[in-house]
Simulated assay, not measured.
Amino acid sequence: MTLRIIAQPLTAEAFAPFGDVIESEGQHSFHINDGNALRFHDVAKAEFSGDAAHVGISLVDVAPYQMPLAVTLMEKHPKGSQAFIPLDNEPFLVIVAPRGPEIRIEEIKAFITNGRQGINYHTDSWHHPLVSLKDAQRFIIVDRIGKDDNCDLFHIEPGQLEVALS
């Protein structure tokens, strides 16, 4: 039997167990650059551990997935947070599960962004790779860069879990 979950709108409160929502709404802000820019200050915290590591900024282009999505793989990063900030103003799908050594598929949640929200996964939070919905999308990634392994994978048997938008 396939468990089917419906993606819910992404909110800071609902996503808090898994990470931070990166958005301007409701955030502390102040003017900088002689009043020409409004800074939304400290909206997420980059986390990382390890002596030979640093926080890096990267770009990624994500091809669209077909919906409903058959979920077969989740990942987590035990040594640092991982943020994705969309550049194309298009909604994308976020699939997460609570921290822990394994995943119980009945605890997996799915959220759909409004296209302007980014996400920052807490260290060790399970998540699905980025899911673009209609077209290819570009994201900024902020995460831990190091020579040691920082990605644990969890495989889900095909046919066990499906995510839908409605």
Rank of each mutant, 00 (worst) to 15 (best):
T2Q: 12
R4I: 14
I5K: 04
I5L: 09
I6Q: 14
A7V: 08
P9I: 12
L10W: 06
E13Y: 14
E13V: 15
A14Y: 14
P17A: 15
P17N: 15
S24E: 15
S24V: 14
S29D: 12
N36T: 12
A37S: 11
R39E: 05
F40L: 04
F40E: 01
F40V: 00
D42Q: 11
D42L: 10
K45L: 12
A46C: 13
S49C: 09
G50Q: 04
D51V: 12
V55L: 10
I57G: 09
I57E: 07
S58Q: 11
V60W: 02
V60M: 08
D61L: 12
P68N: 03
A83Q: 04
F84K: 04
P86S: 08
L87R: 11
D88W: 07
D88N: 11
N89S: 14
P91S: 12
F92M: 09
V94D: 02
A97C: 08
R99S: 14
R99V: 13
P101Q: 15
E102D: 13
R104A: 13
I105C: 08
I105V: 13
I105D: 04
E106S: 09
K109E: 07
A110Q: 01
A110N: 02
A110T: 03
I112A: 02
I112G: 00
N114Q: 06
R116K: 10
R116A: 09
I119R: 00
N120C: 07
T123G: 00
S125I: 03
H127N: 03
H128V: 04
P129Y: 05
V131D: 01
D135Y: 13
R138T: 09
R138W: 04
I140Q: 02
I141C: 06
V142A: 08
V142E: 01
V142Q: 03
D143F: 05
D149Q: 08
N150V: 00
L153R: 10
L153K: 10
F154N: 01
F154K: 03
H155C: 11
H155N: 11
I156P: 00
E157D: 09
P158C: 06
P158Y: 05
P158D: 04
Q160D: 06
L161W: 00
E162Y: 03
L165N: 04
